[in-house]
């Protein structure tokens, strides 16, 4: 359970640190190729985790370009895969959140003397409810996915076994009680994490 939180939490953190600024820039500025970036992000939101797992597997396998890092079947590989799943979710939902802020507000903020950075930061703050939703959605996406962590982590007991892969294994072994119990723990984890994020958002108001 702690590995589940560590892997998904770290992946979420990285995806947020990278995805929020990217989503804000795409949502607030106009540049050539913006349409393409938007298309890629929206497509990325629907990436099948198992395909992400496959690609990361190939990249990290002995003969792959990053094989020398020896990350395959380690938690690091799981973090990489989950970051790739979470990143487009965070970025695309951040983008639509900042686009939802009245464009006139940006002009008014600028007319009050804000720099470009201050304006961007102010608009992000105005979009904080949408930002929270983006992070919650990404967390829900990765903590519950099984395909990618199974492929790149290998479901090794004590090393890369997380809740979802443990549920798969116990179900296969016919231990439905354990599977159900683990499922309940997973649900409670998701509930707790979302409650904490919502709480943070409430305090930001």
């Amino acid at each position: 359970m702690s590995l589940t939180l560590q892997v998904s939490g770290l992946a979420l953190l990285i995806a947020t640190v990278l995805g929020v600024p990217l989503g804000a820039v795409v949502g607030l500025t106009r540049f050539p190729g913006r349409g393409l970036v938007t298309l890629v992000l929206y497509t990325g939101m629907g990436l099948p985790p198992v395909v992400v797992g496959l690609v990361v597997y190939l990249m990290l396998s002995r003969s792959g370009p990053f094989g020398s890092m020896d990350w395959l079947f380690t938690p690091a590989a799981m973090v990489v895969a989950q970051t790739i799943i979470a990143f487009p979710l965070v970025a695309a939902l951040t983008m639509s959140a900042v686009e939802g802020v009245d464009p006139d507000l940006r002009l008014q903020v600028r007319a009050l003397g804000a720099t470009r950075w201050q304006t961007g930061w102010t608009i992000l703050r105005e979009a904080r409810i949408g930002l929270t939703a983006a992070i919650v959605a990404a967390f829900g996406g990765i903590i519950s996915e099984v395909g990618a962590v199974m492929l790149v982590g290998g479901n090794i007991e004590g090393q890369t076994r997380v809740l979802t892969t443990a549920i798969v294994l116990s179900t296969r072994q016919g231990d439905f009680a354990l599977a159900m119990a683990l499922g309940l723990v997973l649900l409670l984890l998701a509930l707790g994490a979302n409650a904490a994020l919502l709480q943070l958002q409430g305090r930001a108001k």
């Binding site: 006139d104 507000l105 002009l107 008014q108 007319a111 003397g113 703050r125 108001k205």
Partner: peptide, 13 residues
């Protein structure tokens, strides 16, 4: 040095 009060002023939340 210049500022505007807009016709439809928007408040920050």
């Amino acid at each position: 040095r210049i500022t505007t009060v807009f016709q439809r002023p928007l408040m920050l939340d």
